[in-house]
Simulated scan of single mutants.
Amino acid sequence: MFEKLVADHLRSKHGKVEFPISTDDITTLIERDVTDLDQHADLTMYGAGVEGVTEFARAGKPRVSISNDVHRFENRLRTTLTHEYGHVILHAYLFALEQRQLAVDGNRKPNAIYCKRDTMVSASKTDWMEWQAGYVSGAALMPRTYLKRVVGDIQQQRNIYGPSSPTSENGVALIDAVVNGFAVSREAATVRLKILGILGQELASGNLFS
C-alpha cells in the first residue's frame, strides 16, 4: 500500500521513481493528506522525548506537528515524518468514528497520538498503533520492491543464501547498502531488513556455495 503511495507520488512529481526519496517529496506527500504540517513545533509541553504529534478531527484531515529539535538530524526527520504519515493514513478513521479516545495526561488531548523517539522505529507489537506507524515509516522510506533490488546485488556478489546475522560481515554489508541507498539510519535499515527476513538467524550454511 505505502510503496504504491510513494511510487505514485514520485511519478506524478518527477515522472520516475528513484530512491532515496527526498525529504521535500516526503513533505509534499504528507501535506496532501493533512490540514496542516508544522515542521518546527515546540512539543516540550507534551513531555520529554515527544518528537511528533498527529491530531485527529471528527471531520476533515488530521494535523501533524514535528518537533523543531528533529531538524538537527536529517535521517531522524525523515523517519519522524513518515512515522506520523502512518498515523494519518491508518488511524484517522478510529478517531473520526469515535472508536478511539486516548487517556488524557497533562496537556495531552484524547484525539491525538504523541510519538517519542524511542518507539518511532522499533515499538513493541503490543503498542500496535506505534508499531504500525513504525512499519509504515520503513515501508515508505525503503519500499520492499526497491530495497530487494539493492540487497539482491549484495547477495549475488557475496553468494548469500538465506538470512544474514546483523553483526556478520554480510549483514553489515547489507545494512550499509540500505543506509546508502535510501538515506536512513542504521537502526531503521536493520529493523526493515529484519522485518523482511533478510537479516536474522543464519542458516546452517550461510553461503550458497560453501
Results as ranks from 00 to 15, higher is better:
Ser164Ala: 14
Ser122Pro: 06
Gln156Tyr: 11
Leu43Ile: 09
Ala140Asp: 00
Val17Arg: 04
Asn107Gly: 14
Arg149Phe: 03
Leu10Phe: 12
Val121Arg: 09
Thr126Gln: 12
Gly60Tyr: 09
Pro20Gln: 00
Met120Cys: 10
Ile175Glu: 00
His9Ala: 06
Ala112Arg: 10
Asn75Tyr: 07
Thr82Ile: 02
Val136Arg: 01
Arg32Thr: 15
Trp131Asn: 13
Phe95Gly: 05
Ile26Ala: 00
Ile21Gly: 03
Val34Ser: 03
Asn75Phe: 07
Trp131Lys: 13
Leu199Ile: 02
Met120Asn: 13
Thr167His: 13
Ser12His: 04
Leu97Thr: 15
Asp8Leu: 10
Leu208Ile: 14
Leu81Pro: 00
Asp42Thr: 03
Leu193Val: 03
Glu187Val: 14
Val70Phe: 00
Arg192Tyr: 00
Pro62Val: 06
Tyr135Phe: 14
Gly197Gln: 10
Leu102Phe: 14
Arg144Phe: 13
Tyr146Pro: 00
Asp38Ala: 11
Pro163Arg: 10
Glu98Tyr: 07
Leu203Asp: 15
Ser67Gly: 07
Ser165Asn: 10
His40Leu: 10
Ser164Trp: 01
Ala59Trp: 05
Thr145Trp: 04
Ser185Ala: 04
Leu97Gly: 13
His71Met: 04
Leu196Phe: 08
Asn111Asp: 13
Asn68Thr: 08
His14Gln: 12
Gln157Asp: 12
Gln157Lys: 10
Pro110Phe: 06
Arg58Tyr: 10
Pro143Trp: 01
Glu98Pro: 05
Asp153Met: 05
Pro143Asp: 08
Ala123Asn: 12
Gly15Thr: 09
Val178Trp: 07
Met1Pro: 10
Asp42Pro: 02
Gly181Asn: 06
Leu208Ser: 13
Ser185Met: 05
His71Gly: 02
Asp153Gln: 12
Glu202Asn: 04
Asn75Val: 10
Gln39Glu: 11
Phe56Thr: 04
Ile66Phe: 02
Phe19Lys: 04
Glu51His: 08
Asp153Ala: 13
Asp33Cys: 04
Gln39Pro: 02
Ala139Lys: 11
Tyr135Gly: 05
Phe2Gln: 05
Asn207Ala: 06
Ala177Ile: 02
Asp8Trp: 04
Cys115Asn: 14
Arg186Ile: 03
Thr28Gly: 09
Ala133Gly: 08
Arg78Leu: 01
Gly86Asp: 07
Thr119Asn: 15
Gln101Phe: 15
Arg76Ile: 01
Met142Trp: 07
Thr54Val: 12
Leu37Ile: 03
Ser137Arg: 06
Thr35Lys: 12
Leu94Trp: 13
Val50Lys: 06
Glu202Phe: 06
Ser124Asp: 06
Ser165Leu: 02
Ser137Tyr: 01
Leu94His: 13
Thr23Lys: 05
Leu208Thr: 13
Val150Asn: 00
Cys115Tyr: 08
Asp105Leu: 14
Ile195Ala: 15
Tyr114Lys: 11
Leu5Trp: 04
Gly47Leu: 11
Ile30Gln: 02
Ala139Asp: 12
Ala103Pro: 11
Leu196Thr: 09
Met120His: 06
Leu196Ala: 09
Gln99Arg: 14
Gly49Asp: 01
Val184Asp: 05
